[in-house]
Design a protein around this nucleic acid. Structure first.
Length: 401
DNA sequence: CCTCCACCGGAAAGCCGGGTCA
DNA sequence: TGACCCGGCTTTCCGGTGGAGG
């Protein structure tokens, strides 16, 4: 019986028409042939890197721009082209790309260097060795053949915020110890982060600086059109859909990635509803869905102690206008802990957990002063009311209250 | 203008699990 | 097997601090 039902389902699914022609084009892993509106930046990168073709060491580059402004795409694209020329001209050149945000892969000094060494063919155990050893292995790999290297460090701000600028310091002066030449390209979406760097590292890293400004609504429109032409079947887009998508994305700092995601999810919603056309209403639904999924995802993947803290905050929000303070949250949290037989964390720690929720956008926690009555955080919940009950259920199940 | 609350938030250090190496 | 390493999570310690109330 069940089997029959499933079969039917799959058959119907197959025969169902989709608005998509090639969905991959809207996914973030997709690399388009051309990158519109970034010609200027691509050229700047090319200008700095070009000397490598004559055997000179290019300057290091620091690239800055908000999320979804095409930094990674442009950098990869440009270096790839450079690589093509280099191999055609038989110039020995190696390009290494690492994303420093990737958990358990390149987000600490040890892991970053290990990752780099691995890409050069040395295998390094994921842990256990002294960092010093890993550097030696990396150096040996670099020296195996004399050539130029270009090292792209994406999201370096993450690395620095987490583990300091030690790794960068070592990398910027590694040229003194090897025959080969290394140039760094650092990509960051937080410009303030350079201030946290040791001055020597800063000046070395940003020998050249390239800024990626946010896209404006018109530019996002053209990006969306370019992709939509390939991604969707003919005539599935209702008038004004692209414009609306672009407007949403431009509203908060011209994030092209978000705009593309919005369009993709809107398409998926359209398919699921068996409609033939993507409408502007679908865009609205998509935006809600993305937000909802994000929050649910964050909440479910959080560890138990975090659940207890969040549950305390939610319980203190009775709908009335009164604001919540750290002290109250901690008191409730403590009693919850003893009720559920969980070990109790210090207030210092809970305070950090609250600010983590703040950074995740689950909660809004501003430090305020109540004068005579001390200083504390003013906490309010940022979860849309529509999914609050669901979040509560998740928390209750995890915590057994 | 000064006090003093109720926390904030940086630094450092400890614990523990997962690992290497000789 | 024991000495040692890394990194995530947590505790300890402690010097701030904005502004209502005196």
């Amino acid at each position: 019986m069940v089997e029959k039902g499933l079969e039917m389902f799959f058959e119907v699914f197959l025969s169902k028409e989709s608005v998509f022609f090639d969905k991959r084009v809207l996914q973030s892993s997709y690399t388009p042939e051309t990158i519109p509106h970034r010609e200027e930046q691509a050229k700047q990168i090319a200008t700095v890197l070009a000397p490598v073709l004559k055997g000179d060491k290019p300057s290091n580059i620091f690239i800055y721009g908000k999320t979804g402004t095409g930094k990674t795409l442009t950098t990869k694209h440009t270096t790839q082209k450079l690589m093509e020329i280099a191999s055609r001209e038989k110039i020995s050149l190696k390009i290494l790309y690492v994303n420093c945000k990737l958990k358990r892969s390149a987000d600490t000094e040890y892991r970053l260097i290990a990752q780099l060494a691995t890409e050069l063919g040395k295998s390094i155990p994921p842990t256990g060795l002294p960092t010093e050893e890993v550097y030696k292995a990396f150096l040996r790999a670099l020296n195996k053949q004399k050539q130029n290297y270009i090292l792209i460090l994406d999201e370096i701000d993450q690395l620095v915020n987490k583990t300091g600028d030690n790794a960068l310091y070592n990398l910027t002066r590694i040229n003194e110890e090897i025959e080969s030449q290394i140039s760094l390209i650092g990509i960051s979406n937080d410009i303030m982060f350079v201030d946290k760097l040791d001055p020597r590292v800063r000046s070395s890293l940003s020998e050249e600086e390239i800024v990626f400004p946010p896209y404006n609504a018109l530019q996002i429109q053209s990006i969306l059109k370019q992709r939509a032409d390939i991604a969707f079947n003919k005539d599935v887009l209702q008038q004004g859909v692209i414009e609306k998508c672009a407007a949403y994305a431009a509203r908060d700092h011209g994030d092209a990635r978000r705009a593309l995601e919005l369009l993709r999810v809107a398409g998926e919603i359209t398919d699921r509803k068996n409609s033939k056309k993507i409408t502007t209403e679908h865009i609205d639904e998509a935006e809600e869905k993305i937000d909802r999924d994000r929050i649910i995802d964050i909440v479910t993947t959080q560890p138990k102690q975090y659940h207890l803290v969040l549950y305390s905050i939610l319980s203190l929000q009775p709908g009335r206008g009164s604001s919540i303070f750290t002290g109250e949250v901690y008191d409730l949290y403590k009693s919850l802990c003893s009720k559920t037989n969980t070990s109790t964390l210090t207030q210092r720690r809970v305070s950090d957990i609250i600010s983590e929720f703040d950074m995740l956008g689950i909660v809004n926690a501003k430090v305020i002063s109540k004068g005579r009555y001390g200083r504390t955080r003013n906490i309010s919940i940022e979860i849309p009311a529509a999914i609050l009950p669901r979040v509560k259920t998740i928390l209750e199940e995890s915590v057994h209250v």
